[in-house]
Amino acid sequence: MIIQQISIFLENRAGQLSEITDILAQSNIDLRAIHIAEATDYGVVRLIVSRPQEAANLLWDKGYILSTRPVVAAPVPDRPGGLAKVLHILADAGIDINYMYSMFGSRDEMAYMIFRVKDVKHLCAVLEANGLNGATPEELGIQ
């Protein structure tokens, strides 16, 4: 359930984001999740894509400033109270969430949330101990 996230520096001006999605589209790379954190003059766009290494190389070659880091795609029961249950597990384990966002689509009545935490392995262990066994990257459509 550990996957690679790509974060890209974006200046706040029209057309910046579409340049990135164009680059990915041209190489037939699928977007699995996208999240934008905004400051006044710039933003950080975070992507989960089908072929992270290739996407990172492509964007780097185009001159984007980016970084990659492991994040956790945690399974969340796709029903009312599903996320609440997962967040309780994290709270009880004393795990700090830096930020989180959702992936597109669901599978076997499970939705997937991306968690950015300090220790991804610890988070996986805690989730598994609570019966939340995540999907493999392949199952999530990520190579």
Partner: peptide, 15 residues
Amino acid sequence: EMTAENFSDSLAQIT
């Protein structure tokens, strides 16, 4: 200009 060294996925670190 932003550089790779100064960039991070965390907005808090950049700011």
